[in-house]
């Protein structure tokens, strides 16, 4: 047994003071209220998300059936479906991917691997890209509309026009995420390739890009899912049309799922709102699948070097 000395007693007392004061300072009424407010902030976001999902599911689930895929829009809600919109979304997003992904990756490779950052034009491109990424979506629709008018195209509602608008919308997003993926590839891998006599383009093509592929894929999928959910630019291209046929080519007329949802929501009858909800469930299901894939790729590929 150690003697309980006055020094030890004093030390003990000091320790008690420390612990009690520490606890009480973290638990003053004000800081407790503060933490509750923080929780409430998160709750607002999550409660809204839950309300949105539950409301949409309850409203739309009964109508999420085969008719949605097989029928064309109709003025009679029980006969209406979103077949042209689903196919139109596939056509437009597919074309968007073909246009925007190679261009975006190429631009990112130039900026990240080859561009001399001391040159004013490269800095201009960088500022410009961060700016473009925050330009409202609807402006891209006006750009596509204005360009088609300049080219003298009278039919503005064509798949390739919609794809150009959405492609320009997501190009900055793809460039920014691809650059981040390239930047995450360690310098040493590039050095190793150059040191055996590979040129810098060979290094980029055979080492850097494959190593950055998971990151690029993640960013690209997220960008395409943003394009898939976007309606505003396509409204300007006359996307709000009643189609009684399947879109079948680059120059075909089209409508898309978000526009179909908009169209049904704008109807006064509740039956159409139910249809809008059903189509929303379908759209969000696809988006969730895409985002889930992106997150899966991201998590699986983390920290390989």
């Amino acid at each position: 047994m150690a003697l309980y000395t006055p020094q030890a007693a004093a030390a003990d007392a000091r320790r008690t003071v420390l612990t009690t004061s520490g606890r009480s300072r973290e638990r003053t009424p004000r800081s407790l209220v503060f933490v509750v407010l923080l929780w409430f902030s998160l709750l607002v976001a999550f409660a809204t998300l839950v309300a949105l999902l539950v409301h949409t599911l309850v409203d739309g689930l009964p109508r999420l059936d085969g008719r949605l895929f097989s029928e064309y829009p109709s003025s009679r809600p029980e006969e209406a479906g979103a077949r042209p919109a689903v196919l139109g979304s596939l056509w437009v997003i597919g074309t968007t991917a073909v246009l925007a992904v190679p261009l975006g990756v190429a631009a990112a490779v130039h900026l990240e691997e080859f561009a001399d950052r001391d040159k004013w034009w490269n800095r201009l491109i960088e500022v410009n890209i961060s700016n473009l990424s925050a330009v409202p979506a609807i402006i891209y629709g006006m750009l596509a509309l204005g360009s088609l008018a300049l080219l003298g195209v009278t039919q503005k509602n064509i798949v390739v026009g919609g794809a150009v608008a959405l492609g320009m919308l997501i190009l900055p997003v793809i460039i920014i995420s691809t650059r981040e993926a390239l930047r995450a590839v360690p310098r040493e891998l590039r050095d190793g390739s150059l040191a055996v006599g590979a040129s810098d383009l060979q290094t980029t093509w055979r080492i850097t890009l494959p190593a950055a592929l998971p990151g690029i894929a993640t960013g690209t999928i997220l960008a395409l899912s943003r394009a898939l959910g976007e309606a505003a630019p396509l409204l300007l291209l006359g996307g709000l049309v009643f189609l009684s046929f399947d879109p079948n080519g680059l120059l075909s007329q089209f409508t898309t799922m978000p526009i179909q949802i908009f169209s049904w929501t704008s109807q006064p009858q509740a039956e159409f709102h139910t249809l809008a909800a059903a189509a929303s469930i379908l759209l969000m299901g696809i988006l969730l699948l895409m985002n889930g894939t992106a997150i899966y790729i991201r998590n699986r590929s983390q920290k390989r070097w």
Binding site: P186, E188, L189, D191, G192, S193, L194, A195, V196, G197, A198, S199, Q202, R206, I207, P210, A211, R304, W305
Partner: peptide, 28 residues
Amino acid sequence: RRRIGMVFQKPNPFPKSIYDNIAYGPRV
């Protein structure tokens, strides 16, 4: 650099198979 090769401080194999790591230089 093809004639004067370099080995670095930290081992930096490529994220490829052992075989492809070796075959990389001759190929490129």
